[in-house]
Design a protein around this nucleic acid. Structure first.
Lengths: 212, 212
DNA sequence: TAGATTGTTAATCGATTAACAATC
DNA sequence: TAGATTGTTAATCGATTAACAATC
């Protein structure tokens, strides 16, 4: 029912509303939020009606209440327990990023097949061997996982995760994953993103040359 | 003319075609490529007609020629020279990722405002001070940049980059950027991606409970 | 009330999918 | 030729935008 892109934007709104709240803003109009979010005001209003939140024509939206509504819509259970597979450069950067910063998003277990990493605690997160994955995932009721392993290993990791009951995967490996329909996969391919930016950067650059 | 999503998929096709070529595959049908790319065969054919590449009903597509066509479409000049701003955990992971691996995508300069990092060479890439950015960008004819700085600094960095002539930005900071229309911005927001995956993971999980 | 903002409905836009004729 | 694959055209789908009536 709720469009996929709306979910992503809600996450953005939530963070911006937190910022505004910290600045002492108690009410906000859609066009004000639109200005800092970089989307249209109409789109924000539509996104909010999707999740059943309604504003007031005179006051706009209550910042605190709206933020909480979005939060409970995105994450009703309060805390999301995540797994990370692959503790290389990228994996460690991801661990560092989520360490402490996000109370509601927590990487509770990391996995690697490098014996020198297993058993270590990095950024407050314990590193387990891949053979321990099914047990740890089930014990911690982990629903979603982040894959940050080399491309050739990504599919095997996805298979293990799926077998262990994970229903959501954020894939950083430059590889397409085949999973069942009951598993949601989001690809975050660095090379693809860079090539896209490079392509459009060149296009814009040429545009500027022609019509300066 | 070419849809934005097509550009991203072309990048994927190029990589998969390289893999197939390395395996000795010389010709490939759209449905074969579709199977490993995770998209429909019809979509691949449409994407390829967009860039003016045509296959043969009996032979399919020549793997090598198709890969080269995509490559020259995405990157006619051969090498894309990129800048990286922010040499923290994520920045270093990005440097490590592109170091050596991608001949056609090269981070030729990194920037940071931490005096202890300036002047160092990380993963073969020199770290410059932010004040040197305009000069280095112009000298190296850098068109696109990657922002990996804390959110509060992202807008200022984007402004400096834009002033220096950069027309494409890949933004990893959890912040919306305001730039002119002549600059293309791609957001890669880790928190947003994780929340999205968490949301759909939960939705799929519940779906499975209802109809197992 | 007057007026800016709200939610809703209709129109538009873009991309994908389906159906089909063309090709080697 | 026969047949699978191709490129193209028409229909569908989803999301966004524009227009409008409702609200405080």
């Amino acid at each position: 029912m709720t469009p996929e892109r709306t979910i992503g934007r809600l996450s953005l709104y939530r963070r911006l509303l937190q910022q505004e709240w910290d600045r002492g803003v108690m009410n906000i109009f859609s066009h004000q939020l639109a200005a800092i979010a970089g989307v249209t005001a109409a789109q924000i209003r539509r996104d909010l009606t999707y999740i059943g939140y309604y504003g007031n024509p005179r006051l706009g939206y209550g910042v605190r209440e709206l933020r909480e509504s979005i939060e409970s819509f995105l994450n009703p259970s309060g805390v999301e327990r995540l797994a990370l597979v692959g503790v290389g450069n990228l994996g460690r950067a991801i661990l560092a990023y989520f360490s402490g910063r996000h109370r509601k998003l927590s990487i509770v277990a990391a996995f690697d097949n490098d014996a020198t990493k297993i058993g270590r605690v990095i950024q407050g997160c314990r590193v387990y061997g891949m053979d321990e994955l099914p047990e740890v995932v089930r014990e911690n009721r982990i629903e979603a996982a982040i894959i940050a392993v080399p491309a050739p290993n990504a599919q095997a990791v996805a298979d293990v995760l799926t077998m262990a009951g994970v229903t959501g995967i954020l894939n950083f490996a430059p590889a397409s994953l085949r999973v069942g329909r009951n598993v949601y996969v989001e690809h975050n391919d660095l090379t693809m993103a860079v090539e896209k930016v490079a392509y459009f950067a060149r296009a814009r650059g040429q545009l500027n040359e022609v019509s300066p």
